[in-house]
Design a binder for these strands. Structure first.
Lengths: 185, 185
DNA sequence: TCGATATGGAACATAAGTGTTTCACTAGTG
DNA sequence: CACTAGTGAAACACTTATGTTCCATATCGA
């Protein structure tokens, strides 16, 4: 089977992310094996382990950036915008999980820089919603963003472990992040 | 300097947790060095890397179990109970972070078992609050627990990275988890 | 068919972590 | 003082991951 280099790189990145999510210490042999490719071929596309991790992180950030920017431009109520962001972010959670894994990734300053660039638009969404009176203004903007993203990751965990249904996830995230878990009086 | 074996084990566990949180792949030499101890001594107390990780996980679970059980018996409103739990869990977040690191820890079934035992009382708290009418009943119990703990971890991250003040954290967690981020109409 | 490209398999050297053992030293204890 | 427990330094064998190189093979296009 021969595929275009583009397709192969895509496949390698996807498989690598999946394997390294489960075990951040997986060897390149394991990664290559999971991708159905020899270690030699993997090395041809990503010369070193760090190069693979770097490409993986950039790819993940590309996706998040695209998802965020796309969702942020959605016209509608705060709830609708949040729904769009959650729906865009949720499928990416699994592939993003490995970003939390360790210093191997975050010791590259360029990636930390990019992360701030990516998260920026979310704060802008919060700012607009606060100004529009639909979000509480007594909470720090960064905290609102943190809570929202944390809820998305929690939902991704719940889906993975079978605690909640995938089809319910986006609704749960938006509803819970906006209105909380307390009974409405 | 000579200390009691008890104290030394405590110090080794604390330092190991701190180092392995920052870099889950840190070598035992790094861990020992950070503890101001030779690798030989570290090996005398924890024969293998896995033994250290196991002890670390059990120690972390001990703390969480104690914190949860203590807080769960707090008499008071749902808000007060949640505040107690958050206050007990928050200082543990940093030392617990390494539990999320990978298969190295969770491939031991005994630890997975314990985790469910530890998280159990939290679901019970939610159940009681739902029965008492102070928590929404249209949300799965497990999801409420997930949201609450995720909010605690988010606050711990925020403290670590300087986005929120430590003294505000517990209040933010409880307030946000209960009432959400939307403006109240 | 010929040639270019990409791959797989294998071997190799290197590096690093791990677990073990041995020996010398120090600080308390009798 | 002698004894003991605990420690650190060093050396060791073993394993594993990594990065590299070489060669045979297969596939696609000219």
């Amino acid at each position: 089977m021969t595929v275009t280099p583009e397709k192969l790189r895509r496949h390698l990145l996807d498989t690598s992310a999946e394997v390294l999510c489960r075990d951040s210490g997986a060897s390149l042999a394991q990664v290559a094996g999971a991708a159905g490719v020899s270690r030699t071929t993997l090395h041809r596309h990503y010369a070193t382990r760090q190069a693979l991790l770097r490409a993986l992180a950039h790819d993940a950030l590309d996706r998040v950036a695209a998802a965020v920017e796309g969702s942020v431009r959605v016209q509608g109520s705060t709830s609708e915008v949040f729904t769009a962001v959650a729906a865009a972010l949720l499928p990416l959670a699994d592939e993003l999980r490995f970003l939390n894994l360790g210093a191997e990734v975050w010791d590259l300053p360029e990636l930390v820089e990019r992360w701030y660039d990516v998260a920026g638009p979310l704060e802008e969404v919060v700012r607009r919603a606060q100004a529009g009176g639909t979000l509480r203004t007594d909470l720090p903007r960064a905290w609102v963003v943190d809570v929202f993203t944390a809820t998305v990751w929690a939902a991704a965990d719940g889906i993975r472990d079978g605690r909640i249904a995938r089809r319910d996830a986006v609704g749960l995230v938006v509803d819970t992040a906006l209105h909380g878990t307390a009974a409405r009086p």
